[in-house]
Nucleic acid binder design. Structure first.
Lengths: 173, 173, 173, 173
DNA sequence: GATGAATGAGGATTCATTCAT
DNA sequence: GATGAATGAATCCTCATTCAT
């Protein structure tokens, strides 16, 4: 992976997540990345290929977001951390999530798979905690957290901290 | 409002909500609406003008979704109905919500205002029910319901009914 | 000639002379004249027909500009007045001349004919004044006056009065 | 500057000067230049950008028209040559002047600046020749020559040579 | 690997003109 | 006479993609 290829991905990631896939022209990407437009197509064949390349990076990094959870054994602590996750997303991770969300609506691709591990982990937690229906309980929580991350990304939160505490209380963790 | 203008709005609403704003070409709209492409611009000046026209219809109709809540006085019943709302959205309303959500991500316009009435009503319910912090409690619930409607729209629900019951139980209504 | 037809001609004259024939859209004319666009075509068949209608008005009025010269008998006085003509053109006449000039360059139509009478009269003056070659002498003067009127119309004159005196002196009148 | 870009400018110059700016469609230019239409916009961004590009060429070449005058020292000879200039304009220079004149009427841009050098030179000549008011004298002459060139361009001259001699005699050179 | 000139299909928009009422 | 909805061809412009160097 050359320096220029990395730069292309980086810029594309930024611009896709900011303006969407369709609305970002390849020549804008090229200009911003200080690279000839042709190079994009040499490396990725397609605009769609570029998108794939960008998505891979996203997935790799979003996956890493969940890694710290592996060290936690106690269910309550684990659950608490799962809930907290979207509330303290760093700048970079936010960008990955933003792109993922944008594409969920724009392209409709299969992005859910990235979140399969965290879904499974959440389900396990609820199992350990003896919830009646761990599967749908996990679905409910993830849906909530999805709502949270949307608000965070779009910067539409009025009282992030209180909502966080609210959820923590609801799940008694 | 002539028949053809109505048809244009109708088709545009459908296509925007299905494929997004950018990805829908005006000539596709014209063809689908069996109308000359020029007519779109005569009536709406711009593609963006068309979008505005479509959004107005959306807003008008989404607002109507909340009307039935006005008849409910008992807080618990009201809250229950608020929660249920996104779970039983009809075909048409779904389209309006889909468009609104798509645009929230694609265009980033100010759509929140449409939901201000329902936010206020939710807040009032929590007040009546003596919740500690009705405001952020309302924010939390709406955020959850936002997650629900996203799933419904994108047809990504695994167990809609159970999640619904789950929420009903959580709020003890 | 109805009031509305007059208004159309008037507005078209104004807009053509200001922005040119091509650059003036019929719907702009209609809007400015507070008239339906269709009416333009009912009255003039074509945009070109409208132009013809406008040009007729122009010609009629430009011709009138020369009428006062008919009363002058003394050659020197007559010549002096011919020279002065483009230097003191009123608002309205300026508009007619502006349109005529614009069209000379934009459409290339046969506009010269309007100026045939003044050309003839100028030639006669030079004949009376015993110039060697009255015909080309007239051509020269008219060419000069054409330059003058261009400057006046385009408002590019630095010292109109002095140039005027200059010419008067050159022709010793 | 690639061959194709040169060709585009060349063709545009020709077509603008012949049919005017507005009336020349970009796809006509492309076809005539045997070039894809897109290339025009890649090189010049805009139709207006193309116009600017064309104008630059015009200005550069029109400026060159005046260069031979630099070698002439004797005022009378110089003045004579200034007067003669518009009477013997070659094919190419005629095209540049035609475009400049067309645009003076169609677009109204600031074209006068190109003629500033010749204006200054003319003024100097009249100074050397002890004319009373060299500045307005120069303005007068240039105005005359402007009339001449218009006639030449529009091919409306009846007796070019005689008019030329006429002017030469008037200025006694 | 990298460039940048070139392409051509498609997209939004304009505009003269028609026509039913 | 007058309106205004409707048309469709033409126009300017964008953009992903190719290709020679």
């Amino acid at each position: 992976m050359t320096e220029k290829k990395k730069k292309i991905i980086d810029v594309a990631l930024e611009m896709f997540s900011e303006n969407g896939y369709k609305s970002t022209a390849t020549n804008q990407i090229a200009k911003e990345a200080k690279v000839s437009e042709g190079l994009i197509f040499r490396h990725f064949k397609n605009k769609e290929g570029l998108l794939k390349g960008v998505l891979e990076v996203c997935e790799r990094n979003v996956s890493k977001m969940f890694d710290p959870l592996d060290d936690l054994k106690h269910p309550k602590v684990l659950l608490k951390n799962i809930i907290s996750l979207p509330f303290n997303t760093g700048r970079d991770n936010m960008r990955y999530c933003k792109l993922l969300n944008k594409l969920k609506w724009e392209v409709g691709g299969e992005i859910e798979s990235i979140f399969e591990p965290i879904r499974k982990k959440t389900e396990e937690v609820f199992e350990l905690m003896k919830y009646d229906d761990p599967k749908s309980e996990a679905e409910t929580l993830l849906l909530i957290l999805d709502g949270v991350i949307s608000k965070v990304i779009l910067n539409k939160f009025e009282s992030k901290l209180i909502v966080h505490d609210n959820l923590i209380k609801k799940y008694e963790v």
